[in-house]
């Protein structure tokens, strides 16, 4: 992709950085589409209410699971896994993290990838979240993204990670709002995995990625024994 026009215009602002060119080019595209998107949405507050409600409800559920100290850890983890299963749109996330590689996968590989990635995410995050006990998470705002996604903004309160910003990017499909990305302190999960998967595929092809993914999922199974 080359953005010659906006690239040359941005010279004044950021000398010699291709990254800035791309960001600027992306920004100009976004701005154009933003003007059309915002005109479609009459009442932003009403539009954002459902995704915010989903995010809030999910956080409440996670926190209430984490506060069950008398339940064994593996049960808590599996309950969080279950919540993650429900609110994440794994098909879209798989597509986004694979980016242009998605097209190179055949149907069977795509299906396999969605399945493994889903398992991977729910296990890693289920296990991680289980350590954060005395934290509250405050949903303090949301914004409409250019093409109709909604980003819900939240902040950790108390504990060691007081003040950490966590944003959830949500998209509506088949009438349901689901999470398609988590952005912690500016670091997007989708973007980070995309780079890692891109690297693995560039070096070893899709087979290598599947191999690694299965390896990780097997490791996780040892750490968190399956409940079912």
């Amino acid at each position: 992709m080359r953005f010659g026009l906006s690239g040359s215009r941005s010279v004044y602002f950021f000398p010699k950085s291709k990254v800035s060119f791309l960001i600027l080019a992306a920004l100009s595209v976004v701005l154009l589409s933003a003007s059309s998107a915002s005109s479609e949405i009459d009442d932003p507050e009403a539009y954002m209410a459902p995704p915010r409600a989903v995010a809030q409800e999910t956080l409440d559920r996670v926190i209430s699971v984490l506060s069950q100290q008398d339940v064994p850890s593996r049960v808590r983890v599996s309950e969080i896994e279950q919540i993650v299963f429900e609110v994440f749109d794994f098909a879209t996330m798989s597509k986004l993290v694979l980016a242009r590689n998605w097209k190179k996968f055949d149907r069977q590989q795509q299906k396999e990838f969605v399945k493994e990635f889903k398992l991977y995410l729910s296990r890693t995050y289920g296990g991680r979240l289980d350590r954060y006990r005395q934290t509250a998470i405050e949903v303090y705002g949301s914004r409409i993204e250019p093409r109709g996604d909604v980003t819900v903004l939240s902040r950790v309160q108390g504990g060691e990670f007081d003040g950490i910003e966590m944003n959830y990017r949500m998209r509506e499909r088949t009438g349901q709002w689901k999470v398609i990305d988590i952005i912690v302190e500016g670091v997007s999960l989708v973007s980070n995995f995309r780079s890692q998967f891109g690297e693995v595929i560039n070096r070893g092809g899709p087979e290598k990625l599947f191999e690694k993914m299965e390896e990780k999922n097997a490791e996780q199974r040892l750490i968190i024994p399956e409940v079912d």
């Binding site: 600027l24 589409s33 986004l96 996604d149 989708v190």
Partner: peptide
């Protein structure tokens, strides 16, 4: 920042429908 990185990260126009 998120807005700037948006398009590249979250959409694939040409194949959107198929996917």
């Amino acid at each position: 920042y998120q807005r700037a990185a948006d398009d590249d990260l979250y959409y694939f126009d040409d194949e959107e429908l198929e996917i």
